[in-house]
C-alpha cells in the first residue's frame, strides 16, 4: 500500500477538486482546486483565517469537507462521486489511505500517558502491524535523527516544548508517511528553540523524498525548504510561485501587503 513515491509517476500526491468547507455561515474554502506533485515541498502562506490550516485538517480528516473531492495518489480519500451523488467513503477504506498521511501539530499533542518511545511505536505496532522489535529499532533510529535518544524513556511532560516537538516529528515519521503535514510546528515554541526544530525538519527535507505541506510563519525556512509557495486569501489561492519569486518579487497586491506585514 505504501508504494515508493517515485514510481507512482505523474499522479499528483494530493489533489483538491472543488473542495468546499464551511463553518456555519462562514465559507472558508469555496471550490478550491490545487494539486501537489509527488515529492513537492509546498508552503501555504496567508493571513490567519485564510483557510491554510483548514486544508491540512481536511487532509488529516480532522474536518469534513462540505463538497468536492480530495484525492491522495489519485485515490478518493473522504468522499467520492457515485453516479451523480457525493457520498462518504467508509472509514475502513479511508484508513487505508490515511496511512499515507502524517501530521505534526502546533501543540505537539504527544500522549502524556506514554513514554517517548511508547508514543513512537504505538501506531507502527497497532496500525501497521510491525513487530515490537522492529518498531522499537526504527523508533530509536528516528530518535537519534531528531537528537532525542537520551530521552527515550522519559514521560512527555518532563520534556521542554522543543523536545516534545522533535519527538512528535519522530512519531509522525515512524509511520513512514508519503505525505507530511506540518501545521505551524514552531509557533508554540520559544524563539531560541525554533532553530533546533527547523534544523531537524531541514534534514528530513534533504534526506527523504516525502511530500510536505507546511503552514508556517517562518518565511526564511519556507524559502529554504519548499519549492513552491501558495499565497491564500479568503479561501482562494491568489498567487503561486517558487519561493525566490514569491518572496522577492510578488505580483499580487494582497501578497505584497501580506509579506510586507510579516517580513517588515
Amino acid at each position: 500500500m505504501t508504494t515508493s513515491t517515485s514510481s507512482t509517476g505523474d499522479v499528483p500526491a494530493i489533489e483538491f477538486k472543488d473542495v468546499v468547507k464551511r463553518f456555519g455561515d462562514n465559507v472558508v474554502l469555496d471550490k478550491l482546486n490545487f494539486s501537489v506533485a509527488q515529492g513537492d515541498r509546498v508552503t501555504l502562506i496567508g493571513p490567519s483565517g485564510s483557510g491554510k490550516t483548514t486544508i491540512l485538517r481536511l487532509l488529516m480528516t480532522l474536518e469534513e469537507a462540505n463538497g468536492g473531492l480530495i484525492l491522495i495518489d489519485g485515490d478518493p480519500y473522504t468522499h467520492e462521486y457515485k453516479g451523480q451523488k457525493w457520498v462518504e467513503i467508509p472509514e475502513k477504506r479511508r484508513r487505508v489511505v490515511r496511512n499515507r498521511v502524517g501530521m505534526v501539530f502546533q501543540q505537539f499533542n504527544l500522549f502524556p500517558n506514554m513514554t517517548v518511545i511508547e508514543n513512537i511505536i504505538e501506531a507502527p505496532i497497532h496500525v501497521l502491524g510491525k513487530s515490537k522489535a522492529e518498531a522499537v529499532a526504527r523508533g530509536e533510529e528516528l530518535l537519534e535523527q531528531v537528537g532525542m535518544s537520551e530521552k527515550r524513556d522519559f514521560k512527555t511532560n518532563q520534556l521542554s516544548g522543543g523536545q516534545q516537538q522533535r519527538v512528535a516529528i519522530a512519531r509522525a515519521l515512524a509511520m513512514d508517511p508519503e505525505i507530511l503535514l506540518l501545521d505551524e510546528v514552531t509557533s508554540a515554541l520559544d524563539p531560541e528553540i525554533v532553530a533546533d526544530v527547523l534544523g531537524v525538519l531541514r534534514e528530513i527535507a534533504e534526506t527523504t523524498d516525502i511530500t510536505m505541506l507546511l503552514v508556517t510563519h517562518e518565511m526564511q525556512f519556507a524559502r529554504e525548504v519548499s519549492n513552491r509557495v501558495l499565497m491564500f486569501d479568503q479561501g482562494q489561492i491568489v498567487e503561486e510561485a517558487d519561493p525566490e519569486t514569491m518572496f522577492t518579487n510578488p505580483t499580487h497586491a494582497r501578497t505584497k501587503e501580506f509579506l510586507k506585514a510579516v517580513l517588515g
Partner: peptide, 25 residues
C-alpha cells in the same frame, strides 16, 4: 481535542484511541 486529533493522525481506530490514549488520561 488535540489528543483525539493526534490519534487520528496516527490512524488509530476509535476503540484504540479510547483505550490507549483518551481513557488513561
Amino acid at each position: 481535542t488535540g489528543q483525539w486529533e493526534a490519534a487520528t493522525a496516527l490512524n488509530l481506530g476509535w476503540l484504540h484511541k479510547v483505550r490507549r490514549v483518551v481513557f488513561p488520561q
